[in-house]
Amino acid sequence: MSDHGGSGEPTPRILVFSTNNISDPGIDLAGSRHLHYPATVSVLAMPCSSGIKPSWILHALQAGQDGVFIASDGEECAYLPDCAERTAHLVTVTQGLMAEQGLEPQRLKMAAVCSVCAEPFAKYMREFAAALSTLGPRPVTAG
């Protein structure tokens, strides 16, 4: 966890997977409107959330992230009509693998973030950070 949240309390580190056409613009908009969320949030953009590998999420949790958030396209995905189901399936599979490593399933979250969902995104980040804080530090640290 990082010490820079301004409060002295360590702020959990969160990795967000966004999508180039839908959720990443929504996250951009949150910044454009100067909506604040923890500075410990990093975003990696992908074409579509259905392309995220479970191994990447596990790797992120081993490499210092306290939680991973998938900002998916919901029903809006331009590529795959069943994008939401595919991504939800990936989350389920990953949470199974996380359990094997003693990682709480709550460290992985998914929600649809639309291209104008600035407020919801900032709120998700604040809430996820708070939820991860109550979980405490990761039980497994590698590296």
Partner: peptide, 21 residues
């Protein structure tokens, strides 16, 4: 690398955090 919309503008309240990000 997006350090404006996804960093400086979102963390105008946290210069240290924004720099680390």
């Amino acid at each position: 690398v997006n350090i404006r919309e996804q960093d400086s503008w979102a963390h105008t309240d946290d210069h240290e955090g924004a720099t680390e990000r």
